[in-house]
Design a protein around this nucleic acid. Structure first.
Lengths: 342, 342
DNA sequence: CCGGATCGGGAAATCGATTTCTTGATCGAA
DNA sequence: TTCGATCAAGAAATCGATTTCCCGATCCGG
């Protein structure tokens, strides 16, 4: 057995002894609930300070039934969308004294399942599900079970409000329509659409925006211009789609991607096939990942507002704490960020 | 008061009652310590399964004195270096049943200080400090205090072994030397060096590699070729350095950046000033961020092995748990990943 | 057949903070 | 002056899992 020199932490009892009161009084002073003799209060405060007393979080958690952590489940922390969101959420939680438990789903339903299974025993303050991947319907009972068990559950980025989960999302269809309309009005059509059309509610909404813009301009929807990337929102999907379009001889003056990664993949393909951006082809992405602005040409894209999401999450957590109603849907606007690519 | 319908979780006592034994026996069965009557064991197992029993983590933590979370403090989760590392660490922790508590330092010593202050009361299983920012010496007492208090503390990415903190790092000087030697041998000199030379131990090591390569080739160290980016390892530092070099009329055939972000900023500046990469100027980065391969031209860089870091962290945690010695320094090699930019 | 050894398993203590419970005391009104 | 009320504050219960502690029973060698 290794010499356990783990010097015992100072407890509320140590403080009590030093201040010549009972542990109950120490607790009362530190939590400012009941009235305590002013002079005793000072002694307790002094004792706590002198001993550098820090209440044991584990004990507090056990007693109160909930810890001080909020879990956030992200699709893939390596993607800028999630890491940027995580950054804002962590900062917000820090401000209200909560810890962030991060769980990387890696796009795997199994990982989601296994986390949800152990979630109830964790004593979480809240659970934020941040993934754009579709959540299979078989999860609904588990998710609702958690909510009934008192868990504050929120979806970030994906609308699950119709499945009973309060959601904080960005507008998708209107934003997509705005961007495509801009391309058309700049005379850059035909416009290629590259993104997940099926299999992702968010992708479908963005695609609906594309169609709405076409309809608004009185243009027909041409199937050969739409590339449904079954795989995740990543570069190669954009690269391959554009390569195929070029090889098929399809003429187009712009690419509307449904993610910045796809847009950058598309730009790489355009480069490799001798098309100049934006002279020959304009490109617009979705999501404003941080290095889109560092590319040459810099990427035009649709904004994202992680700070607003974090703020909405905060108020949801606070409402839940206070027993107030949590809004089922919070929607955040996007704007077109014009840079060199379109 | 909101109707608290938080259905009580099933406890070890519920299981005990159902199996007709005492809670002690349930615990013995579930933890496989002492011997338990085979038939009773089965009853307990069955009862636990039927009730879907999940031991309350908070109670376990209080009892055992430590929770099941490992905290990781990162410089800035939005940077690919950290998000990629986080991904691997989280996956590794998940495998051994531990949770990841993520704390974003945002390059602020104050945030580090405030986290360290509350760390002892958290009951952490371990604490991984992952930042390339210099840790001011005034932190040493706190850090050592944590270690003496039994905390498993590790530095990831930055050598702090000489300050008494076990460190898991990548080789820096040898890797930098390798890259610069490659540039010189390809006839691409003079080589510009852009990166943190002072104020960052890691940057200094990479710079030492640059000088070593020069010395090895019998070339002089020319001050006008070295750009010390006082600010963080980000794009604009690389952009500005190259812009200034060009405007100053300094001739050069390559840029060795001390991060991929700097390299990409440098490439943007080269592009904006009509220099072609790699025809006119070769560029090598450091760190292999995921989208360096998506650029055109794709970025040549030095590898990073987050999986190896996570594995080393794992074995350190396991050693600490077992009371075994934790190695003070683990060093991981880097190799040159040749892509189009050099 | 007996006494020490081994074993299975329940009762109770423990971890540390908070929240009842309770009691002694002070206060105010009748 | 006295009795219910208000109040400060200690003793003890509580949260739930684990770990002593301890007892009765079975075992075995002598």
């Amino acid at each position: 057995m290794p010499t356990a020199d783990k010097e015992r932490m100072t407890t509320v009892l140590d403080v009590a002894r030093r201040a010549g009161v009972s542990s109950a009084t120490v607790s009362r002073v530190l939590n400012g609930q009941a009235t305590v003799n002013a002079e005793a209060r000072l002694r307790v405060l002094a004792a706590a300070a002198e001993l550098g007393f820090q209440p044991n979080r584990m004990a507090q958690s056990l007693r109160s039934g909930r810890g001080r952590a909020v879990a956030m489940l992200v699709g893939d922390i390596e993607q800028n969308l999630y890491s940027a969101l995580t950054k804002h959420v962590q900062a917000m939680l820090g401000q209200i004294g909560l810890d962030l438990l991060l769980y990387n789903l890696d796009h795997s339903p199994d990982r989601l399942r296994s986390f949800l299974a152990m979630a109830p025993s964790l004593g979480l303050r809240g659970l934020a599900l941040a993934t754009t991947d579709a959540i299979p319907p078989e999860f609904d009972p588990v998710l609702q079970g958690l909510r009934r068990g008192g868990m504050t559950l929120l979806s970030l980025g994906q609308r699950l409000d119709e499945r009973g989960i309060p959601s904080i999302v960005h507008e998708e269809q209107a934003a997509g329509e705005r961007a495509v309309r801009f391309l058309i009005e700049s005379g850059r059509h035909p416009v290629l659409f590259v993104g997940r059309v099926t299999g992702s509610a968010i992708g479908a909404e963005r695609y609906r925006g594309y169609r709405a813009a076409l309809a608004g301009a009185g243009l027909p929807l041409r199937r050969e211009l739409v590339f449904d990337t079954a795989t995740a929102y990543r570069y190669s999907a954009g690269y391959d789609a554009v390569r195929r379009a070029i090889e098929a001889g399809t003429g187009f003056g712009a690419v509307q991607a449904s993610s910045d990664e796809i847009a950058l993949g598309a730009m790489a393909a355009l480069h490799d096939h001798g098309r100049r951006v934006p002279e020959d082809v304009a490109v617009i992405g979705f999501g404003n990942i941080d290095w889109g602005a560092q590319m040459r040409p810099a990427l035009t894209t649709l904004s994202v507002h992680h700070d607003a999401v974090a703020a909405a999450l905060r108020s949801a957590l606070e409402n839940a704490e206070a027993g107030t109603e949590v809004p089922m849907l919070t929607s955040i606007g996007r704007s077109l960020i014009r840079r060199a690519s379109a």
